[in-house]
Amino acid sequence: MTNPKGAQGINRIGRLLDLVPYISAHQGISLTDLANAFSSTPAHITEDLNTLWMCGLPGYTPLELMELSFESGFVTIQNAQTLKRPRSLGRDEILALILGLEYLKDQVSSENVLKEIADLLAKLSNLVGNFIHERLTTAMPALAGIRSQLSLAVDHREALTIEYHSLVRDSVTFRTILPLDIFTENNTEYLLAFCNLSHSHRTFRLDRILSITQNSNESTIPEGTPNQNQGKTTINLSIISRERDVREAFGLEVKVHDSQRDLETSVDVFNTDWAVRIVMSMGGAVAIDAPTQTSRAVSERAAKALLGYEVGTA
């Protein structure tokens, strides 16, 4: 394990051992599919198969050797004896399955399936030796449901109606959309969709989708490239305090500095109203240096809010 080359050798033996049962269960699989299943290349897999070809149980007569055929680009195996049984699951593999099942649990409602998941979790936890699954939650039940509905709609190119809360405008609207893709940025999940309301491609935060209804009538989505977003604005900021919060709010890199910190920074935004609201929410911990019209927007907004407190501005 200490030298990487040795570790590689071990990994290769592990893969060789796993190849045999996999081929046994998938006789006639193509080299390409096999390479994909093992995240490898056809060339590497061919090399592995050449090595395997020489293997057999002691005795070493031609009768006991494994029979592999793969010249045609499709792989079959005969006479694999005990090696055709898959190896026991490793610890990391078990942990990955436990977490995956925990996560599934929150998205399933059928009693029978839940029971099956619970049985599998008990079996797997037993192998790890402690009830680790009881100390993990991957739960985002609401979001999980929305995500699977959306990803099915993406797969089936189905139009949906969503109820969406726009945080920047602080309003709730119903929109008919055609979901195109789900992606992640800065720990937040977004849906890219064509929106019939704005007649353009839009991104929606999954956690702001309040409800989804299936659309029975086909929606008309024009072909073409996504609309260009409105232009970028570069905003210069001075961070006065609460640096971690400010940076996280703007999605800026949170890094530790050594001595003198550079508290002036800039951020590119597509929507200056969003930047204004963030600066507001930081309550004076960050100030906008430029452009002046954006910094004026902050002070005007604050002055307007003060009127609500009937304390006047003087």
């Binding site: 796993d18 996999y22 299943a37 995240s39 898959p86 593999e93 990955a96």
Partner: peptide, 11 residues
């Protein structure tokens, strides 16, 4: 890890 677990199961 999940992929190699899956391969074993599918075997």
């Amino acid at each position: 890890a999940a992929q190699s677990a899956l391969n074993k199961l599918l075997s």
